[in-house]
C-alpha cells in the first residue's frame, strides 16, 4: 500500500466530501449548486488521474515512438463536464424562478412559506 501512489486519490476523495458536505449542510440554494459543481469536478479529477502514466505525454500522436496517457477517461470527462454545466444552468434557472415566486433562496424560509399557504 504505497503512500505516494494513492496520495492523489485521497486528496480527491477529500475534495469530493467537501463538495458533498456543502450540498447537504448549507441552506442557500446557490451555495448548494456550487457544492454540486465542486463534487462533480473532483469526480472528474479522479477519472483523469486514473488515465495518467508516469512519464507519458498527452494522447496527441507525434512522430517517433512515445508513451501516451490513456485517452478514454478524457473522452468520458468531456461528456461529464458538459453534463455538469447543463445541470448547473438548469439549477440556476430554477433558483431565479424560486427567488421570484418565494422571494427567498434559503431552504428553511422556503419550507416555512410552503407550510403557511
Amino acid at each position: 500500500m504505497n503512500f505516494v501512489g494513492l496520495f492523489n486519490y485521497w486528496i480527491v476523495m477529500v475534495l469530493m466530501m467537501i463538495g458533498f458536505y456543502i450540498v447537504i449542510a448549507q441552506g442557500n440554494l446557490v451555495k448548494k449548486l456550487v457544492g454540486l459543481t465542486l463534487f462533480q469536478t473532483s469526480v472528474f479529477i479522479m477519472y483523469i488521474t486514473m488515465g495518467k502514466i508516469e512519464g507519458a505525454t498527452a494522447p496527441i500522436l507525434v512522430e517517433g515512438e512515445a508513451l501516451y496517457s490513456n485517452p478514454l477517461p478524457h473522452v468520458l470527462i468531456l461528456t461529464a463536464i458538459v453534463v455538469g454545466i447543463a445541470t448547473t444552468a438548469l439549477g440556476l434557472a430554477l433558483v431565479v424562478r424560486i427567488k421570484e415566486s418565494y422571494d427567498s433562496i434559503e431552504e428553511d424560509e422556503i419550507n416555512r412559506k410552503d407550510q403557511e399557504c
Binding site: 458533498f20 450540498v23 440554494l29 448548494k32 454540486l36 463534487f39 462533480q40 445541470t87 438548469l90 439549477g91 430554477l94 433558483v95 424562478r97 424560486i98 415566486s101 418565494y102 422556503i110 410552503d114
Partner: peptide
C-alpha cells in the same frame, strides 16, 4: 419549482 429543485439536487447526487 421547489419540488423540481429538490429533485434536481437528489437526482444529480
Amino acid at each position: 419549482l421547489w419540488a423540481s429543485y429538490q429533485y434536481l439536487i437528489a437526482g444529480t447526487i
